[in-house]
Amino acid sequence: MNGQNRKDITPGTAVDIVLKADQRTGKLTSGIVKDILTNSQFHPHGIKVRLTDGQVGRVQEIKKQP
């Protein structure tokens, strides 16, 4: 599932994000969502989130929950 819809993401969700510094390479960083930073319900480049470790980036993929 992609990370363009805010309704699909909640704190505690496991996601892959792309950090600002990695946007050119597309390198993904995995983590757990702590805060949702985008206010709009949809964003074409992905909803911006803060992970539990403090990193900020846009969600590229939402991992399946067991």
Rank of each mutant, 00 (worst) to 15 (best):
V49S: 04
N5F: 04
M1A: 13
T10M: 13
T38H: 01
D8H: 12
Q4E: 08
I9H: 05
T25A: 14
R6M: 08
R24K: 12
L37N: 09
D16K: 08
A21Q: 13
P66V: 07
G26H: 04
G12F: 03
R24H: 14
N39M: 14
D35T: 10
S30W: 10
K64I: 13
T25M: 04
I36E: 03
F42S: 00
D53T: 15
G3K: 03
K20D: 15
I17H: 03
G3S: 04
R58M: 06
T38G: 11
V59T: 02
K7N: 13
V15H: 01
K64H: 11
N39T: 14
F42H: 09
Q41A: 12
G57W: 08
I17S: 03
M1G: 05
G31W: 06
V59D: 06
H45D: 15
Q65C: 11
K7G: 11
T10H: 15
T52N: 13
N39I: 13
N2L: 09
N2D: 12
K64C: 05
E61P: 00
G26S: 06
D16P: 02
I32N: 03
I32L: 05
I47N: 00
Q41S: 14
G3A: 06
L37A: 13
G46W: 00
G31T: 00
L51P: 07
K63D: 12
T52C: 10
N2T: 15
F42Q: 07
S40N: 14
Q55V: 07
D22T: 05
F42M: 07
I17T: 13
G46K: 02
K64S: 15
R24I: 15
N39C: 08
F42K: 02
S40Y: 09
R24V: 15
V18C: 05
Q4A: 02
L19F: 01
Q41H: 12
H43D: 04
E61C: 07
A21N: 10
A21V: 13
R6V: 03
I36T: 06
G12N: 09
Q4K: 06
V33A: 03
H43Y: 03
I36R: 10
P66M: 01
G12H: 02
I17C: 08
T10P: 04
H45L: 15
Q55A: 10
V33D: 01
T29V: 09
V33P: 00
Q60N: 06
G31L: 07
Q55E: 13
H45V: 10
G3E: 02
I17R: 05
T29A: 08
V49R: 00
P66Y: 01
F42L: 12
G54M: 10
T29N: 03
K48E: 12
F42D: 01
D16Q: 12
Q65V: 12
N5R: 11
I32G: 03
D8C: 10
A14H: 03
N2S: 12
M1Q: 10
Q55H: 08
R24A: 15
A21D: 13
G3Y: 03
L51V: 09
I47F: 00
Q41F: 11
L28C: 01
A14D: 10
A14C: 09
L51F: 07
T38M: 13
P44E: 02
I62C: 00
K27N: 06
Q60M: 07
L37C: 09
T13A: 08
V15K: 02
K63H: 14
L51A: 11
K7S: 13
K63Q: 14
